[in-house]
Amino acid sequence: MTHTRILIAKTSLDGHWRGVMVVARAFRDAGFDVVLGGMLRAGDIARMAGDEDVQIIGLNVGGRIEVVHRILDTLDQAGLADIPVLAGGTIPPQAIDELASRGVSVHPPGSPLTEIVDAANRLLGRVG
């Protein structure tokens, strides 16, 4: 299996890193190359996704959904709409459908790590 590169970034300026770290380690253990981006602006996420040639993006959401939309819009404008996006974190239940309708795979707190990695593999066209 060739290595798949995943960019993991936080959408908000809230520094809680526990969820990010646990998920990042799960992807590393599953054989992914993990690029840990930290608290990036939308433009930085698009730039890093392009520069680092990532195949999939994981967003840790700690704020409002408008900020996630801004990141998705920026990816679209940068011609990177084909990169699948996963989102986890403190996502309010009412926002899950809204994100899912844009093709985002949403994983609220309590999601098993295997489920998250399987979802990534499915989005990449592999059998999970």
Partner: peptide
């Protein structure tokens, strides 16, 4: 607010403007 207070940023700091909808959330 985590963004402005934890960072000691004014609300017109570019990192805040980028995520302005989050202001007042936490």
């Amino acid at each position: 607010d985590r963004m402005t207070d934890d960072h000691l940023y004014d609300v017109d700091h570019p990192d805040i403007v980028e995520r302005r909808e989050d202001v007042g959330l936490t």
